[in-house]
Amino acid sequence: MDDALLSVEGLEIRFGGLVALQSVSFAARRGDITAVIGPNGAGKTTLFNCVTGMYTPSAGSIAFAGKELTRLKPFEIARLGIARTFQNLALFEGLSILENLMMGAYGRGHSGLLEGMVRSRRAVREEQETRARALEMLALLGISDLADKRPGELPYGAQKRVEFGRVLMQDAKLILLDEPMAGMNAAEKDELVALIRRIRSTLGVSFLLVEHDMPVVMDVSDHIVVLDFGRKIAEGAPEAVRRNEAVIAAYLGADAPEEALHGMPGAAA
């Protein structure tokens, strides 16, 4: 595991009496698409919140490129190169699509607050560069014509792409995708999968993915971590996980959605 980009060790988090995650350990390798799956309530989103610094774990460690994250503030983690999309989109409703994308880059802006306020030459140049990049990104995502619209005016699939674009603008090394396929039709899913692959190959970005759509997970992932009731019950390549008895039991025992079971031949058999 020398090339682990993100390594989680003995992660534990409690909310009052409830143990949401219990001694979870796994690693996401550099360049990999790592999926975290599990029935509803397994602790997937909680795991994401721990990685992004929204929650402070009760025990354990999370290291990103060798740097401990558990003591850092969310914006510091973001600046290290971890970006994230949300299950329920987190877009800036009051900003235009172009501005939403630019925001991704500004968070990491180099010129300081004061410089930005007094409009130093560097701040202005940065601003122009960011705008140009955001426009390129819109083109890459195929939504150039929507630059001046507000998120609320766009269909769901397009909003997802905007969020994706903002995350890419952050120059992240690791992107956390929280159910990116939810609410998308088959064609949109195919496009997004292709996009994820393209980005990985061209930008060398690694992904950590929470997803219920099993065919997509099986198709796109290099490595899968399975959580159930806050514990890791299995880990491995898609083929291995598909045949894992504990995984099958967890999915059968749980009140899993039809969609989740679909694409798990082992379970269906």
Binding site: A78, R79, A83, A90, F92, Q170
Partner: peptide, 11 residues
Amino acid sequence: DSHEAATIAGV
């Protein structure tokens, strides 16, 4: 607009 999204974007 959104404290959450802004934080995630590194603001």
